[in-house]
């Protein structure tokens, strides 16, 4: 992290009000290339609102966003995708009856000309999907011709991620609760996928309720509380107890002090 290189994403003084309700107040966020930033916080702490602003779904009331030092104004989610910022939703947005390849290219199908008509190039989509899954995420499906609902949670996650990373300009991947619906084995696989994305030099933001997963995967943790950024910590220098303490609003070190006083 050389100081003269601007961070990949720099959000400054982000404030979002819905009518009289202030969802976010003066929130900053920095994300570097090749790092995983976890965002944690209680329900209603403003995690989702912050992410929706970053992915262009919502516009901030105040504040600025810069991408590699360049100011960024987005009016829609497709603006964000165009600038290389994409999200994988908790529901994954997969159509269960379609094949993995059809899902990966849903809404942006590869086509070819046939008698002057534009028709789907199913074979190329299948090959591209297989290659993307293998080379970028290290995932091999037993068949590319299955319907997506027959795949495991981790494989489904892989298809949703592959859809985002396939677009060559992708720089920032936001993952909303990627492990919320998964068992331990599938969680481990999903964390591996996130690892793979980071290793390709992308910036990854993970929203999670599971502190275990956050500590397993992230480089830094941004803790949100009541619409404000409560703290940012290096994952290596922190532990679950202190992050929990900041989340619920206990003064720094109080959790430890409490523990100490119990011994007296």
């Amino acid at each position: 992290m050389s100081p003269d290189l601007p961070p990949l994403i720099q959000m400054r003084g982000i404030t979002k009000r819905f009518g009289g309700v202030t969802a976010l107040e003066d929130v900053d966020l920095e994300l570097n290339a090749g790092e995983v930033l976890a965002i944690v916080g209680d329900n209603g702490a403003g995690k989702s609102t912050l992410i929706k602003i970053l992915t262009g779904v919502l516009r901030p009331t105040e504040g600025t966003i810069a991408l590699s030092g360049q100011p960024l104004v987005m009016n829609s989610h497709s603006d964000a995708i165009e600038h290389g910022i994409d999200a994988v939703y908790q529901t994954l947005a997969l159509a269960d009856h379609l094949t993995p390849a059809a899902n990966m290219f849903l809404g942006s199908e590869l086509t070819k000309k046939f008698l002057g008509l534009e028709i789907l190039d199913n074979r190329r989509m299948r090959e591209e999907a297989e290659r993307t899954l293998q080379e970028r995420l290290g995932v091999t499906l037993r068949s590319m011709e299955v319907s997506t609902d027959s795949l495991s949670g981790g494989q489904r996650q892989a298809i949703a991620i592959a859809r985002a990373v396939y677009h060559s300009g992708l720089k920032v991947l936001v993952m909303d609760e990627p492990t919320a619906a998964l068992g331990p084995r599938e969680t481990a696989r999903t964390l591996k996928l996130i690892e793979a994305v980071r290793e390709q030099g992308l910036g990854v933001i993970v929203i999670s309720h599971s502190l275990d997963d956050v500590f397993a995967i992230s480089d830094r943790i941004q803790i949100m509380r009541r619409g404000r950024r409560a703290d940012v910590v290096n994952t290596r220098d922190s532990d679950t107890t202190s992050v929990l303490g900041i989340m619920v609003g206990a003064p720094a070190g109080q959790a430890q002090t409490d523990g100490a006083s119990a011994h007296e």
Partner: peptide, 25 residues
């Protein structure tokens, strides 16, 4: 059904309308 966007999107819409919407169909 198998070679055009119309068929592909018909399946996607019937399978998961929210997902279809989210992916820009």
């Amino acid at each position: 059904y198998t070679r055009t966007r119309l068929g592909r999107y018909a399946i996607a819409i019937g399978s998961n309308p929210e997902a279809a919407e989210l992916t820009g169909v």
